[in-house]
Nucleic acid binder design. Structure first.
Lengths: 247, 247
DNA sequence: ACGCTTAAAAAAATCGATATTATTCCCAAC
DNA sequence: GTTGGGAATAATATCGATTTTTTTAAGCGT
């Protein structure tokens, strides 16, 4: 469980969904202006507060987040590399656009990368990794997917644990780079999930799917685990795709 | 041959090795300060002028490249996401460190991603893609690997065409994201190649390897093509690894 | 009314200065 | 001789103002 990411990250807003890994890092109230701007912008983009394609005017953001131009500009530069923001020649920044085509690519690419990462993890993971997987799966199962019983309301704690489960699955793949790519794609996917504005539970039993993946992993059945993981993503993807006509 | 990358890039220095894609973009002398700083810093890091781990003092860079602090800072932020620069808490920036372990991971990850991308390209590429591959292979073969006959001197034109060949191979994979990841890893790899300071030709016939890959691709033999491509990378990797003790 | 040129407004990019934070170095105390 | 405190120094992070560039609007002639 090493923490090699020195990048700036400091969760602040509630909609953050554990995307900025708050794990074992100094979570003191003190944070650089750049980090704060970065975290808030990112959260607002993922949450859909900032609409895809929307112009991001420096002066507006400056006043909104109450910081100078430099931190805003730096945060936007960082978000550009995360593909949450697009920089236009000499015309400033805007929220990254979304499209059904891009979502397809995203889903596909995630499957390719996560499958590879999972297979490597299964091949190389040790006992400690197994335990971490079990623990992450258990913790995820202990929390309801929705914050309300009758209709769907995103449960922040479930989001955090869900991400942690998926990160743990591939954490033994022995490639920091691959893990970072998967992380990036995961976050992109969450954005699409938010934007699709799902209101209803999916009908399938997501918890059972997680359990099945966990079992296959513990049995070191790479083919089965990979197949289950990919279906898990594709199913969720198809579910979202239906609600993604707006873009 | 679409150009979807709106990111800032503007080749300036000679050591650039075609890493910033100058393809069909406005290559006028006019470029933003940020782009210039970005391109030059990047080139200097890849070329090894800026040593791994070296502190990057804003004031120094400001004077060296003759721009204000903001563009420098923004360029460094961008390079941070490219993993060419590391940002340390509140202590500024430094050139990303290198290590044998990281190189191993890099090589491994490249193989995984490029194999997937190549297989997808072979599965989905059309006639136009085939023609582009042939053309890229031919152009690469028309230029010597070394600028000098007796000892090895990097040939900028070969570098450009080599990259273009590899980009073309996977250009039909239908995933912009995957292509970007591969691009990133390619550039990281070039940095390692530069740092290793190779002086001699590799004994194997690199041109022949490219030809073989091209043939397998045209025959739509995915297994063979993938195997050849991976060997190509692993061979080059092993060759470099031997000379990488310094770090 | 339409297109072209030009002026005014808005916004982005950049700069230089200030405030903040880390580092260094010296000196005293143990 | 080492350790700890605390200036002095150096470097970063941030801000507000200035310079360019782009966008909008207006004017003019056809």
């Amino acid at each position: 469980m090493k923490q090699e990411d020195t990048e700036l990250m400091m969760p602040e807003s509630v909609d953050d969904f554990g995307l900025s890994d708050t794990s074992d890092k100094e979570t003191s109230g003190r944070a650089s202006m750049t980090s704060r701007a970065y975290a808030r912008l990112r959260a607002d983009i993922i949450a859909g507060v900032l609409i895809p394609g929307q112009k991001l005017k420096i002066e507006e953001l400056r006043q909104l987040y109450d910081v100078g131009t430099s931190p805003i500009r730096e945060a936007l530069s960082l978000l550009t590399s995360d593909h949450f923001v697009e920089r236009i020649d000499q015309r400033g920044f805007r929220v990254a656009t979304v499209s059904a085509k891009e979502f397809d690519e995203l889903l596909k690419t995630r499957c390719w990368l996560e499958e590879r990462a999972l297979r490597e993890s299964i091949a190389h993971g040790n006992a400690s990794w197994e335990e971490q997987v079990v623990l992450a799966a258990y913790r995820l199962s202990r929390v309801p997917r929705s914050a309300a019983d009758d209709h769907f309301v995103a449960n922040a704690e479930w989001e955090v644990r869900h991400k942690h489960f998926h990160v743990t699955l591939i954490s033994a793949c022995d490639s920091t780079m691959l893990m970072k790519f998967c992380d990036q794609l995961y976050d992109q996917n969450i954005r699409y999930r938010q934007l699709s504005g799902i209101q209803a539970y999916p009908t399938r039993d997501v918890t059972a799917e997680h359990g099945a993946i966990c079992d296959a992993v513990l049995a070191r059945d790479a083919d089965l685990a990979a197949q289950l993981l990919v279906s898990h993503y594709v199913n969720t993807g198809d579910f979202l795709k239906d609600q993604l006509d707006a873009y």
